[in-house]
């Protein structure tokens, strides 16, 4: 049986890779995928903890995150398309994330 820590570290790695992607990529779609990946790493972490504690709260949480992800993708892509109509570009830098 694989210890919970292994799953947690895998989750942390994926989360960090996703965060790196958000901070370093400039394509809005890829950034969006990275955010989805971050949510997935949380799902993995939660399921591992659910097994660890032997209760269902973690799994319920994951189920809700999935619902959120589905809603997010619908809204997010709608916003993306609306934005592309205006700017004809999906480079995130066009919307200046790091601008103060």
């Amino acid at each position: 049986m694989v210890p919970t820590n292994y799953y947690l570290i895998l989750g942390a790695m994926i989360f960090a890779i996703g965060a790196i992607g958000v901070l370093s990529r400039r394509n809005a779609l890829i950034i969006f995928m990275c955010v989805e990946m971050m949510l997935n790493s949380v799902n993995l972490t939660l399921i591992a903890f659910a097994r660890q504690w032997n209760n269902l709260n973690g799994q319920i949480f994951v189920f809700m995150i999935m619902a959120v992800a589905a809603a997010e993708v619908a809204v997010g892509l709608a916003i993306l398309i609306a934005h592309v109509h205006h700017s004809k570009s999906i480079n995130i830098d066009d919307i200046n994330v790091m601008k103060w």
Binding site: V22, G76, H83, H86, S87, I92, I95, V97
Partner: peptide, 13 residues
């Protein structure tokens, strides 16, 4: 639409 885009990406992050 730019505001929505930016808000969405950073908010989801």
């Amino acid at each position: 639409s730019e505001a929505a885009m930016k808000y969405f990406l950073l908010g989801a992050f």
